[in-house]
């Protein structure tokens, strides 16, 4: 699915990722945890192709293609989806129109005809249910006036509509109350399949109670310093990150 080797990336000349390795196979869910400033969101942004992030070294292969050479839109068209930590508002553009444009752009890239309007509406109806999204929200402007929870649900709704092969969730749990968290997690779980992988970036173990990962990685100082099964998340919750930090420092010495 995606293979990241020795990835170095910097923002405004400052190196954030310092030789990151990660291998995600089809159908797997990988959780990325780590203390503040360890580079978790940077990883998500770099993979999605945000402009201010510069890859200085390393390689990323996504479905057999060199990801780094692709534009942000082509990465999306290849099946990479980023659920934003802070979803962006686009006033005056309805969610429906936005998604239809996106779907047809992706279809065009794949050499397919534009989606049939009826089929599209049926798809909207079906996928809305996944995240218990009100039908009215689909017709409102993209994220405009949405509550924090609605925005996150809308991200998952969009992901369901675009059917990516790799979903990256960037702190999707932040700012969610427990009910919204459950709805979002359920949505993601329903999208899990043998062909679809997820990278779940999170601060807290809480989300992983609902979206149970195959692997948990700890990111610290731009590198993955520990990898374990889902139980690792519980251990982190209990002990915090200090022991990881000192382990990492000792290893470096």
């Amino acid at each position: 699915m995606i293979s990241i080797k020795n990835l170095h990336a910097s923002v405004e000349g400052k190196e954030i990722l310092k030789g990151l390795n990660l291998e995600v196979k089809p159908g797997e869910v990988h959780a990325i945890m780590g203390p503040n400033g360890s580079g978790k969101s940077t990883l998500a942004s770099v993979l999605a192709g945000r402009e201010d992030y510069e890859v200085t070294e390393g390689e990323v292969t996504f479905n057999g293609k060199n990801l780094i050479e692709l534009s942000a839109e082509d990465r999306a068209r290849e099946g990479l989806f980023l659920a934003f930590q802070y979803p962006i508002e686009i006033p005056g553009v309805s969610n429906i129109n936005f998604l239809k444009t996106a779907i047809n752009e992706i279809r065009e890239y794949k050499g397919l005809d534009p989606i049939d309007p009826k089929q599209f509406l049926a798809l909207v109806k079906e996928k809305q249910k996944l995240v218990e999204l009100d039908g009215k929200l689909a017709n409102r402007s993209v994220n405009e006036g949405f509550s924090g929870g609605e925005k996150k649900r809308n991200e998952i709704f969009q992901m369901a509509m675009l059917e990516p092969t790799l979903g990256i969730l960037d702190e999707t749990d932040s700012g969610l109350d427990i009910d919204a968290l459950r709805i979002v997690a359920n949505g993601v779980n329903k999208l899990r399949s043998p062909e679809r992988s997820f990278i779940v970036v999170t601060h807290y173990q809480r989300l992983l109670d609902y979206i149970v990962p195959d692997y948990v990685h700890v990111l610290y100082n731009g590198r993955i310093v520990k990898t374990g099964p889902k139980e690792l998340a519980l251990e982190l919750e209990e002990k915090g990150y200090d022991w990881i930090k000192s382990d990492a420092q000792n290893a470096a010495v």
Partner: peptide, 23 residues
């Protein structure tokens, strides 16, 4: 806003059209 559109598969030209028409 443009990156958000890009990330959904919409290129920059189309994104501007979309955003401006919304405005």
């Amino acid at each position: 806003q443009i990156f958000y559109c890009n990330q959904r598969g919409i290129d920059t030209e189309k994104a501007i059209g979309l955003i401006v028409n919304g405005y």
